[in-house]
């Protein structure tokens, strides 16, 4: 879902870059206000973890393979603000080092995947947890949040492409959402299993990490 350079026009990428840059600056300011000294290695390490976890892939039928994205995973473990910074860092390094996602599209990619995909996914989780309290609903909340996060990011990317005049909305939206429905199911399974395993084997870790 990383949008490369050349697919968004100037008004779209400029405004999204300013928006994402502003959110990132605010999050960094918030991080600085808190107790950060022990947090810096954790954030750097978690970003490296997301990067490494995205290298692990599993085969899907037909020679394609899927991988884990980890936005909701990070936000649930570290909280939305730290999760957002972590995911933005992953996207920035992917853009600079890997060329996965364009430089001009970086703001759009951060907005789609780190903000909508992770922070909003986290609030879907929180909303669901507040509605249905109790440990039994945990896996459903994880699955729902991660599926929604993928769909939200895909829908946002389609709207941006359509708004740039690259592809009409009625073509790109069904195509993107169709592909990402399946990707979202994969992400939901991986995230739910990962978090439930963590909950089972190291519950104290999840309490330390707050959510």
């Amino acid at each position: 879902m990383h949008i490369p350079d050349g697919f968004l026009d100037a008004k779209t990428w400029l405004s999204l870059s300013i928006l994402s840059g502003g959110i990132l600056a605010g999050a960094l300011k918030g991080l600085k206000a808190g107790r950060i000294r022990g947090r810096i290695p954790l954030i750097g390490m978690t970003a490296a973890f997301v990067f490494a976890a995205q290298m692990l892939n599993f085969p899907i039928a037909g020679g394609t393979s899927g991988h884990f994205m980890g936005g909701v995973f990070c936000c649930i473990l570290l909280g939305p603000m730290t999760g957002f910074i972590t995911m933005s860092m992953v996207l920035i390094v992917q853009c600079l080092l890997f060329q996965d996602g364009g430089l001009t599209a970086l703001g759009a990619n951060i907005f789609n995947m780190a903000f909508l995909g992770s922070v909003c996914g986290f609030y879907v989780y929180l909303f669901f947890r507040l509605m249905f309290w109790g440990d039994r609903t945990r896996p459903f909340a994880y699955a729902l949040a991660s599926w929604f996060s993928v769909m939200l990011a895909a829908a946002a990317a389609s709207f941006e492409l359509a708004f740039s005049g690259t592809i009409p909305l009625k073509v790109v939206l069904p195509a993107m959402l169709g592909v990402h429905t399946i990707i979202g199911v994969g992400e939901a399974i991986v995230t739910t299993v990962a978090l439930m395993t963590l909950w089972k084997i190291r519950p104290e870790l999840m309490k330390v990490l707050k959510y």
């Binding site: 692990l56 884990f68 299993v193 990962a194």
Partner: peptide, 13 residues
């Protein structure tokens, strides 16, 4: 995917 989930947990810990 479920197997990958457990790998991810191990890597995270």
């Amino acid at each position: 995917p479920a197997l990958l989930g457990r790998l991810v947990t191990a890597l995270f810990i």
